[in-house]
Structure formats: structure tokens, C-alpha cells
């Protein structure tokens, strides 16, 4: 399966990754090779096989509805790139 420039650009956009124009052919080649590797799976008949999402049939544990996390805003925001008035700042969002 060969991916072209448009495919790579579309995937990179979905994943919000800036890819240098010059690097696109290499990514296209790498990704195509990986998809060829992955293509080996397609020869296997799995029509009756239930997908396995987790190694065993464990079930979700439930947490009591009790407050365990108190305000740690200053501490948690100490690693934020841009903060004002307790808010995280990002470039203007246009809706």
C-alpha cells in the first residue's frame, strides 16, 4: 500500500503535526513500508474471532463518588506555558 503526498498531508493534519515539505516523501515512503508490513495481517481469516482489547476479561472497577482531589491550581499551573487569572491561555479560538 503506497501513500502519496496528499495522504501524508491529510494524516498529518488530522494528527495536528507540522511536517516539513521536504520530509513528506520520506514519511510517505516510511509509512508505506510500515503499511506493507502491516498488510501481512490481511491474509489471515479472522471472521469468527472476537477482537481482544485487553489481555484478560477483567471488568471495570468502580470508584466511590467522594471528593478526593482538592484545589491544587497554583501547583498544577506552575508548569503551564501561559496562564492568567487562573485560566490557561491559548491563541484566540474562533467559533
Amino acid at each position: 500500500m503506497a501513500l502519496n503526498r496528499t495522504d501524508v498531508e491529510k494524516i498529518a493534519h488530522l494528527a495536528r503535526l507540522q511536517i516539513d515539505d521536504n520530509d513528506v516523501p520520506e514519511y510517505a515512503q516510511n509509512l508505506s513500508n510500515i503499511l506493507d508490513l502491516i498488510g501481512q495481517m490481511q491474509n489471515i481469516d479472522t471472521s469468527d474471532i472476537e477482537p481482544l482489547a485487553h489481555p484478560f476479561d477483567a471488568v471495570q472497577r468502580l470508584r466511590a463518588d467522594k471528593i478526593t482531589e482538592l484545589n491544587q491550581r497554583e501547583h498544577l499551573q506552575s508548569v503551564a506555558p501561559a496562564v492568567a487569572n487562573g485560566l490557561f491561555l491559548v491563541p484566540k479560538v474562533i467559533e
Binding site: 492568567a84 485560566l87 490557561f88 491561555l89 491559548v90 491563541p91 479560538v93 467559533e95
Partner: peptide, 15 residues
């Protein structure tokens, strides 16, 4: 919530 009014060129995020 995204708060658009508080800052001129930025949006504030309250989680």
C-alpha cells in the same frame, strides 16, 4: 469552557 471575552487576542480555558 473557553472564555473569549476576558482577553484581547487570547482565549482563556477553564477546566
Amino acid at each position: 469552557k473557553s472564555l473569549h471575552e476576558e482577553f484581547a487576542n487570547m482565549t482563556g480555558i477553564d477546566l
